[in-house]
């Protein structure tokens, strides 16, 4: 006669036990909380959390530290479960902007004429722009290789950037979204000695943010 009642009682308090367990977990999590995540490219960096009372270094994805009140020492690193990360940081995680996308466009030697392969990338660039939820910013940055005079290359890198910008504007891209810069031969993708012809350095980088 008693057995079913006990079972019923247990069943009734089970949800409360779950909530209690959750509260206990939350109670252990410091109110001021710092969590390391895996980078978008899969690597894991490092953060150091430091104050006058001490410091902790996090170097594994999901590792966390923190403290309840100012003046306390950051606690030993612990692993924060995925679920609790979502619980606390869901809004901030969901508000992360779309990733930056970069296109490299290459040029024929000594000219501001695109290679055929690079010219063929235009539809993909336009499709990327169209797919953006927020208004994109488009950085167009011109470069040259180290062949020839540096001042000539400064002009050439600008001419290359203009070629790409004008190509975008002809496709009805809003001029106000495009920022044009040029670095001459000073910012090679592949470092070389001076006076070296390097196709990979004859480029314009189009970065969509």
């Amino acid at each position: 006669m008693i057995m079913p009642q006990t079972a019923l009682g247990l069943r009734a308090i089970r949800p409360w036990l779950a909530i209690l367990a959750l509260m206990l977990v939350s109670a252990c999590t410091p109110t001021n909380l710092f969590v390391l995540l895996e980078d978008d490219d899969g690597k894991v960096g490092t953060i150091q959390v430091k104050n006058d009372a001490g410091s902790q270094t996090l170097n594994q994805a999901g590792q966390a530290t923190g403290l309840d009140r100012a003046g306390q020492e950051p606690v030993d690193p612990f692993v924060l479960e995925e679920e609790e990360i979502r619980d606390v940081f869901g809004e901030a995680l969901d508000a992360q902007p779309e990733p930056t996308v970069t296109f490299l466009l290459y040029f024929q030697i000594g000219t501001s004429e695109l290679t055929a392969e690079s010219e063929a990338l235009l539809p993909e660039i336009l499709a990327t722009l169209d797919a953006r939820k927020a208004p994109p910013r488009i950085a167009v940055v011109g470069h040259t290789d180290t062949l020839g005079d540096a001042s000539v290359n400064a002009n050439l890198s600008l001419a290359r950037a203009r070629t790409v910008r004008d190509m975008l504007l002809r496709q009805a891209v809003d001029a106000g979204l495009v920022e044009l810069t040029s670095h001459g031969e000073s910012n090679p993708l592949v470092p070389t000695a001076d006076e070296v012809s390097e196709p990979r350095n004859r480029r314009v980088e189009v970065t969509i943010r």
């Binding site: 710092f34 980078d39 009140r69």
Partner: peptide, 18 residues
Amino acid sequence: TPVATLSVRGTKFLARVD
């Protein structure tokens, strides 16, 4: 933050300040 300073070495992370 009011409770600690974070040094960042090329990475992605989360912070909550209460």
